[in-house]
């Protein structure tokens, strides 16, 4: 539904500030009241917001105070370790489904048994995903338990669904899951029912079973 031109005129000069999150209190409420019912102004706000988001990349970098990283991680771990009734609901909502992390290009499977934030300090194992000697992406296998596999495909020249499986050092093969690759790019993470040290090789195939890339993991 589109509001009358008069209403649009009344808020037009405030849309930029609204889009940039600079309005507060009554002003914000007034503009919001109009925008929710006016598709024209709503579109304007969305497009101005997108422009603002691009410009924010121009902000200068600056070194934070000493040990900033340590303090952030301490707060993160304290939050992760604290009992949290509210977060249980949040996790439940997230865990209920596949979570689209990178649009159509990356899926993270976060099922009901997805891990609580668990520390994994060991260095992950890494390997190059390659085909015919050409690097197509990277693979990382966490050394923590449970084991997670992270895959990034950056140079596959096609779009479609791929299957990921791993071969363990005892010869067993485990399916990791199916993932989407769009325009040569895909990234995902998924849990593997093995320890990181047991993983010998990862294989990416198309739906017909043709091998797209493999990675050999050295321990």
């Amino acid at each position: 539904m589109t509001s009358s031109p008069l209403e649009c005129d009344e808020v037009r000069d405030d849309l930029a500030e609204f889009a940039l999150g600079l309005l507060s209190g009554r002003e914000r409420a007034r503009v919001l009241d109009h925008v929710v019912s006016c598709s024209t102004c709503r579109h304007e706000v969305e497009s101005l917001t997108a422009v603002g988001d691009r410009l924010v990349t121009l902000a200068p970098s600056s070194d934070p105070p000493t040990d900033f990283e340590t303090r952030v991680l301490e707060r993160y771990r304290a939050n992760a370790a604290a009992p949290r009734r509210g977060r249980g609901r949040e996790l439940g909502l997230v865990a209920a489904a596949l979570v689209l992390v990178a649009g159509a290009t990356a899926l993270v499977v976060r099922g009901p048994h997805a891990p609580a934030p668990v520390a994994g300090h060991d260095t992950p194992l890494s390997a190059t995903l390659a085909a015919d000697g050409h690097a197509l992406g990277h693979l990382w296998v966490s050394a923590s338990v449970p084991t997670w596999i992270y895959v990034s495909l950056d140079d596959a020249s096609w779009s479609g669904t791929v299957w990921c499986s791993v071969t363990l050092r005892d010869g067993r093969t485990l399916d990791v899951g199916a993932f989407a690759v769009h325009h040569g790019h895909g990234a995902w993470a998924a849990r593997v029912a093995a320890t990181g040290r047991e993983v010998r090789e990862a294989r990416i195939t198309d739906v017909a079973g043709h091998v797209i890339a493999t990675a050999t993991v050295s321990t």
Binding site: A80, A102, V108, V118, D122, W140, S142, Y150, S152, A189
Partner: peptide, 23 residues
Amino acid sequence: ALDHVADDALLAGVALGDDACVG
């Protein structure tokens, strides 16, 4: 090794609660 992981894959790890990815 994680310092070279693509942003979106790294965020996938962050979403899963892997504190190495958070770091």
